[in-house]
Protein backbone atom coordinates (compact mmCIF):
# COMPACT_ATOMS: atom_id res chain seq x y z
CA UNK A 1 0.00 0.00 0.00
CA UNK A 2 1.23 3.48 -0.85
CA UNK A 3 0.27 6.99 0.29
CA UNK A 4 0.64 10.34 -1.49
CA UNK A 5 4.33 11.11 -1.90
CA UNK A 6 5.59 7.51 -1.66
CA UNK A 7 8.56 6.95 -3.96
CA UNK A 8 7.56 4.12 -6.31
CA UNK A 9 10.39 3.79 -8.80
CA UNK A 10 13.47 5.47 -10.17
CA UNK A 11 14.73 5.29 -13.73
CA UNK A 12 13.19 4.54 -17.10
CA UNK A 13 9.53 3.79 -16.57
CA UNK A 14 6.25 5.24 -17.74
CA UNK A 15 3.95 7.06 -15.36
CA UNK A 16 0.48 5.49 -15.33
CA UNK A 17 -2.62 6.69 -13.52
CA UNK A 18 -2.25 8.32 -10.09
CA UNK A 19 1.50 8.53 -10.53
CA UNK A 20 3.53 11.66 -11.12
CA UNK A 21 7.11 12.14 -12.21
CA UNK A 22 9.76 14.48 -10.89
CA UNK A 23 13.14 14.23 -12.60
CA UNK A 24 13.68 10.47 -12.80
CA UNK A 25 11.57 9.61 -9.79
CA UNK A 26 8.01 8.35 -9.74
CA UNK A 27 5.70 9.13 -6.84
CA UNK A 28 2.18 8.12 -5.92
CA UNK A 29 -0.39 10.90 -5.72
CA UNK A 30 -3.13 8.98 -3.90
CA UNK A 31 -3.59 6.27 -1.32
CA UNK A 32 -3.77 2.93 -3.12
CA UNK A 33 -2.05 -0.20 -4.32
CA UNK A 34 1.02 0.19 -6.52
CA UNK A 35 1.48 -1.97 -9.59
CA UNK A 36 4.25 -2.37 -12.18
CA UNK A 37 3.19 -3.77 -15.55
CA UNK A 38 5.04 -3.43 -18.88
CA UNK A 39 7.42 -0.77 -17.52
CA UNK A 40 4.42 1.32 -16.46
CA UNK A 41 3.94 2.24 -12.82
CA UNK A 42 0.32 2.72 -11.76
CA UNK A 43 -1.53 3.06 -8.49
CA UNK A 44 -4.99 1.53 -8.05
CA UNK A 45 -6.77 4.09 -5.89
CA UNK A 46 -8.59 3.14 -2.70
CA UNK A 47 -10.46 6.44 -2.48
CA UNK A 48 -11.53 9.05 -4.97
CA UNK A 49 -14.30 10.61 -6.97
CA UNK A 50 -15.38 9.68 -10.47
CA UNK A 51 -13.52 11.42 -13.32
CA UNK A 52 -15.54 11.35 -16.54
CA UNK A 53 -14.06 9.79 -19.68
CA UNK A 54 -15.52 9.92 -23.17
CA UNK A 55 -17.65 6.82 -23.91
CA UNK A 56 -18.20 5.94 -20.24
CA UNK A 57 -21.78 4.99 -19.50
CA UNK A 58 -22.92 6.55 -16.23
CA UNK A 59 -26.09 6.88 -14.20
CA UNK A 60 -26.95 10.52 -13.53
CA UNK A 61 -29.49 12.13 -11.26
CA UNK A 62 -31.28 15.30 -12.39
CA UNK A 63 -30.48 18.21 -10.08
CA UNK A 64 -31.45 21.18 -12.22
CA UNK A 65 -33.74 21.76 -15.18
CA UNK A 66 -32.89 24.63 -17.50
CA UNK A 67 -35.06 25.47 -20.49
CA UNK A 68 -33.45 23.11 -23.00
CA UNK A 69 -31.15 20.98 -20.89
CA UNK A 70 -30.87 19.05 -17.66
CA UNK A 71 -27.98 19.22 -15.23
CA UNK A 72 -27.12 15.77 -13.91
CA UNK A 73 -25.22 14.86 -10.80
CA UNK A 74 -22.83 12.16 -12.02
CA UNK A 75 -20.79 12.03 -8.78
CA UNK A 76 -17.84 13.77 -10.39
CA UNK A 77 -16.45 17.23 -9.57
CA UNK A 78 -18.38 18.53 -12.60
CA UNK A 79 -22.10 18.26 -13.28
CA UNK A 80 -23.08 16.57 -16.52
CA UNK A 81 -25.14 18.44 -19.09
CA UNK A 82 -27.83 16.56 -20.98
CA UNK A 83 -29.18 18.72 -23.81
CA UNK A 84 -32.79 18.21 -24.85
CA UNK A 85 -31.62 17.45 -28.37
CA UNK A 86 -29.50 14.58 -27.05
CA UNK A 87 -32.27 13.21 -24.85
CA UNK A 88 -35.35 13.61 -27.08
CA UNK A 89 -33.57 13.22 -30.44
CA UNK A 90 -35.40 16.37 -31.53
CA UNK A 91 -35.23 20.02 -30.51
CA UNK A 92 -37.46 21.02 -27.61
CA UNK A 93 -39.88 23.82 -28.38
CA UNK A 94 -39.86 25.75 -25.13
CA UNK A 95 -42.89 27.80 -26.17
CA UNK A 96 -45.08 24.70 -26.32
CA UNK A 97 -43.67 22.29 -23.81
CA UNK A 98 -41.77 22.19 -20.56
CA UNK A 99 -38.54 20.23 -20.16
CA UNK A 100 -39.90 19.04 -16.82
CA UNK A 101 -42.66 17.07 -18.48
CA UNK A 102 -40.02 14.72 -19.87
CA UNK A 103 -37.57 14.59 -17.00
CA UNK A 104 -37.84 16.24 -13.60
CA UNK A 105 -35.57 16.78 -10.61
CA UNK A 106 -34.58 13.49 -9.00
CA UNK A 107 -35.03 11.45 -12.18
CA UNK A 108 -32.35 8.86 -12.93
CA UNK A 109 -30.84 8.67 -16.39
CA UNK A 110 -28.49 6.18 -17.96
CA UNK A 111 -26.30 8.23 -20.28
CA UNK A 112 -23.04 8.17 -22.14
CA UNK A 113 -20.29 10.79 -21.81
CA UNK A 114 -20.12 12.41 -25.23
CA UNK A 115 -17.36 14.97 -24.73
CA UNK A 116 -15.26 16.09 -21.80
CA UNK A 117 -11.99 17.98 -21.36
CA UNK A 118 -12.11 19.40 -17.81
CA UNK A 119 -12.56 22.98 -19.04
CA UNK A 120 -16.25 22.47 -19.80
CA UNK A 121 -18.86 20.37 -18.10
CA UNK A 122 -19.12 16.85 -19.50
CA UNK A 123 -21.86 16.59 -22.12
CA UNK A 124 -24.00 13.51 -22.01
CA UNK A 125 -26.14 11.74 -24.57
CA UNK A 126 -28.84 9.09 -24.51
CA UNK A 127 -29.04 8.66 -28.27
CA UNK A 128 -28.16 4.98 -28.22
CA UNK A 129 -30.05 1.81 -27.48
CA UNK A 130 -30.26 0.86 -23.79
CA UNK A 131 -29.73 4.46 -22.71
CA UNK A 132 -32.36 6.84 -21.38
CA UNK A 133 -34.55 7.47 -18.37
CA UNK A 134 -34.64 4.74 -15.75
CA UNK A 135 -38.26 3.69 -15.23
CA UNK A 136 -38.08 0.83 -12.74
CA UNK A 137 -35.82 -0.95 -10.31
CA UNK A 138 -33.48 0.47 -7.71
CA UNK A 139 -30.37 2.62 -8.03
CA UNK A 140 -27.73 2.31 -5.31
CA UNK A 141 -24.50 4.20 -4.85
CA UNK A 142 -21.16 2.42 -4.55
CA UNK A 143 -17.67 3.85 -4.24
CA UNK A 144 -16.50 4.75 -7.80
CA UNK A 145 -13.08 3.24 -7.06
CA UNK A 146 -14.74 -0.16 -6.51
CA UNK A 147 -16.42 -0.32 -9.93
CA UNK A 148 -13.76 -2.62 -11.46
CA UNK A 149 -14.28 -5.05 -8.56
CA UNK A 150 -18.06 -5.05 -8.89
CA UNK A 151 -17.66 -5.90 -12.57
CA UNK A 152 -14.81 -8.34 -11.99
CA UNK A 153 -12.25 -9.74 -14.41
CA UNK A 154 -13.97 -9.96 -17.81
CA UNK A 155 -17.27 -9.38 -16.05
CA UNK A 156 -16.95 -12.42 -13.78
CA UNK A 157 -18.46 -10.76 -10.70
CA UNK A 158 -21.33 -9.01 -12.44
CA UNK A 159 -22.23 -12.19 -14.35
CA UNK A 160 -22.25 -14.10 -11.08
CA UNK A 161 -24.57 -11.51 -9.53
CA UNK A 162 -26.93 -11.65 -12.53
CA UNK A 163 -26.97 -15.45 -12.70
CA UNK A 164 -27.49 -16.10 -9.00
CA UNK A 165 -30.08 -13.38 -8.42
CA UNK A 166 -31.98 -13.39 -11.70
CA UNK A 167 -31.96 -9.58 -11.63
CA UNK A 168 -31.02 -7.21 -14.38
CA UNK A 169 -27.99 -5.23 -13.22
CA UNK A 170 -26.09 -2.35 -14.73
CA UNK A 171 -22.97 -0.81 -13.18
CA UNK A 172 -22.36 2.82 -14.19
CA UNK A 173 -18.73 3.87 -14.39
CA UNK A 174 -19.51 6.53 -11.77
CA UNK A 175 -20.38 3.93 -9.14
CA UNK A 176 -24.18 4.05 -9.39
CA UNK A 177 -25.66 0.59 -9.81
CA UNK A 178 -29.09 -0.11 -11.28
CA UNK A 179 -30.79 -3.29 -10.13
CA UNK A 180 -34.14 -4.49 -11.46
CA UNK A 181 -35.63 -7.74 -10.23
CA UNK A 182 -39.04 -9.33 -9.79
CA UNK A 183 -39.37 -7.96 -6.27
CA UNK A 184 -37.79 -5.40 -3.94
CA UNK A 185 -36.46 -8.24 -1.80
CA UNK A 186 -34.48 -9.63 -4.71
CA UNK A 187 -33.01 -6.21 -5.37
CA UNK A 188 -32.13 -5.79 -1.70
CA UNK A 189 -30.10 -9.00 -1.70
CA UNK A 190 -28.05 -7.81 -4.68
CA UNK A 191 -27.58 -4.40 -3.06
CA UNK A 192 -26.28 -6.08 0.08
CA UNK A 193 -23.92 -8.26 -1.96
CA UNK A 194 -22.54 -5.13 -3.64
CA UNK A 195 -21.97 -3.53 -0.23
CA UNK A 196 -19.97 -6.64 0.67
CA UNK A 197 -17.87 -6.38 -2.51
CA UNK A 198 -17.18 -2.73 -1.72
CA UNK A 199 -16.02 -3.45 1.81
CA UNK A 200 -13.80 -6.39 0.89
CA UNK A 201 -12.72 -5.15 -2.54
CA UNK A 202 -9.08 -6.17 -2.33
CA UNK A 203 -9.31 -9.49 -0.51
CA UNK A 204 -8.72 -12.90 -2.03
CA UNK A 205 -11.48 -15.41 -2.72
CA UNK A 206 -14.08 -12.66 -2.90
CA UNK A 207 -16.01 -14.18 -5.82
CA UNK A 208 -16.49 -17.45 -3.91
CA UNK A 209 -17.69 -15.65 -0.81
CA UNK A 210 -20.18 -13.61 -2.84
CA UNK A 211 -21.48 -16.78 -4.50
CA UNK A 212 -21.98 -18.35 -1.07
CA UNK A 213 -23.76 -15.24 0.14
CA UNK A 214 -26.14 -15.14 -2.82
CA UNK A 215 -27.01 -18.82 -2.54
CA UNK A 216 -27.67 -18.47 1.18
CA UNK A 217 -29.91 -15.44 0.79
CA UNK A 218 -31.80 -16.54 -2.31
CA UNK A 219 -35.34 -15.14 -2.26
Amino acid sequence: MVVPGTLLAEGRYNAGVNVYKEDDKFFSSVVGLAELRNETVTVIPLRGCYIPFVDDVVIGKVVEVISTAWMLDIRSPWQGVLFAKEFLSKPLNTMKEDARSYLDIGGMVKAKVMAFDRTRNPSLTTREPELGKIQRGTVIEADPTRVPRIIGKKGSMINLLKKESGCQIFVGQNGRVWIAGKSRDEEAVVAEAIRKIEAEAHTTGLTDRIQEYLVKHRV
Partner: peptide, 11 residues
Amino acid sequence: LTDAGVPMRDL
Protein backbone atom coordinates in the same frame (compact mmCIF):
# COMPACT_ATOMS: atom_id res chain seq x y z
CA LEU B 1 -7.65 15.15 1.81
CA THR B 2 -5.98 11.77 1.25
CA ASP B 3 -9.14 10.07 2.50
CA ALA B 4 -11.18 12.11 0.01
CA GLY B 5 -8.92 10.77 -2.75
CA VAL B 6 -7.67 14.21 -3.75
CA PRO B 7 -4.42 13.74 -5.70
CA MET B 8 -1.50 15.20 -3.76
CA ARG B 9 2.25 15.48 -4.20
CA ASP B 10 2.87 14.48 -0.62
CA LEU B 11 1.33 14.47 2.81
